[in-house]
Design a protein around this nucleic acid. Structure first.
Lengths: 240, 240
DNA sequence: CGTGTTATTGACCAACATCAAACTTAGTGG
DNA sequence: CCACTAAGTTTGATGTTGGTCAATAACACG
């Protein structure tokens, strides 16, 4: 299984975005990689930093976040195994946000230099990386709309739809359930709500039998219902 | 003046992101371009479309937006002369959002094919385009935090700071004022507030002498105050 | 001048936040 | 195996930000 092997995982991700020929795959395999483990709640990359590597999630749940005045946190994105949460650092010198581990996590780090060289020699690989970055931006746009113009109930339903679809595509979800080890406080930071309100909305979603949760695994009991409740329209995921 | 001439404007933008040699500039000048005019409130690009060109704003104020259930609109970004609001279409087949003219506007359209060819021949040009797309994504992230975790008052102040800084950099603002021809309803769609509340917050900002507005030109009366009120920290603009 | 759009105001209301306490769960060490 | 602890969840009471509705005022334009 390619799971957890950095290069194979990266190749798998790139191939899910477009074709890669053998030579390109070899070039990816030749990338230097450094693997590091992270404790829950530790930063993979800190805001303000000037990274010299891009990271890829190998294991665990990772988020990007920003702090605002008053010490409140906004989670900007959630990332799973195989995701590349800081491709922008290839071209933007300083981190405008942090990347942090929501659970214990493991990540691979690929040096910018090496990626850039690879990109120059194999423009197709570079384009696939950029395609991934553009998909990330598409998710940001959707989060703006979700947080800006949907009710708490819709927001949470929408987030669950997104997470489920993405995990399905990555082979990280079951047929109709997924494990999302986030506390309600973290869900609150992702949806711009309070912990208490997240709790109440989750209860409502369960009461209405849209989801059935036990611990941190959530079963989609009524996909059409959830999708409708969350005003979810998946084209922004660009899953093709 | 390069203003309004598509190729010179594009070169100027790329050079603000990184060096361009003479050959690269010539290659940019060789791009086919089509110029079109748009009425206020008309779409430059529609959600769901499969564009075959990237557009650049030549004149007027343009926004990207999404509609959500119930007919509510969320504005995702505001774009000025020289901006490239749909670079993602180079790699993402279908538009996950619309691009619309807030005022009468003019835009240039460059065919994807031609850009891709240019990019293959001149990787540096391609990388600068991607850098621009990554900066756009950085703004999306900031909007998530702004809308998600700031008060109405902070949000508007923050938006004004962003718009002012960006227009300054583009040479579209005066020393301490800028023209932003958006109605309060449009500001509401950008900040995820109601029209009425935007009105009240603007009055407060004026009462507190942070801004002085007359019509759609806003003077920054107290930059430090506004910056502080909006919890504004400009590194996310990546202006270097 | 009308006529339509935008800005402003006031009254009222709802969604969600805050606060504080109780309860549950999962570890942890004796 | 049990008491102890800390983290997370749930509940209720109460507060506040900002939304909605509706009317009026100010403009802009033909």
């Amino acid at each position: 299984m390619a799971l957890e092997h950095p290069h194979e995982l990266l190749i798998q991700r790139l191939r899910s975005l477009g074709a890669l020929d053998g030579e390109e795959q070899e070039a990816v395999r030749a990338l230097p990689a450094r693997v590091r483990d992270f404790a829950e709640n530790s930063d993979l990359v800190r805001q303000g930093e000037r990274p010299v590597e891009c990271c890829m999630v190998l294991r665990g749940l990772v988020c990007r976040y920003k702090m605002v005045a008053g010490g409140r946190r906004q989670i900007l994105a959630i990332h799973f195994t195989g995701d590349l949460p800081d491709l922008q650092s290839l071209h933007l010198a300083v981190m405008d946000h942090g990347i942090s581990a929501l659970t214990v996590a493991r990540a691979a780090f690929f040096p910018h230099d090496a990626i850039r060289q690879l990109g120059r020699r194999h423009p197709n690989v570079y384009e696939l990386l950029m395609k991934q970055a553009l998909i990330d931006a598409s998710l940001f746009r959707d989060w703006i709309a979700n947080i800006g113009r949907r009710t708490a109930y819709q927001r949470i339903a929408h987030l669950f739809c997104e997470v489920f679809m993405r995990m399905r595509k990555l082979g990280l979800a079951e047929e109709d359930s997924f494990r999302l080890p986030m506390t309600q406080a973290e869900l609150a930071d992702a949806t711009a709500l309070s912990t208490v309100h997240v709790n109440r909305v989750l209860q409502q979603l369960r009461r209405e039998r849209l989801i059935v949760s036990s611990g941190d695994v959530h079963a989609i009991a009524d996909w059409d219902g959830l999708r409708h409740a969350g005003d979810f329209e998946e084209s922004y995921l660009h899953h093709d």
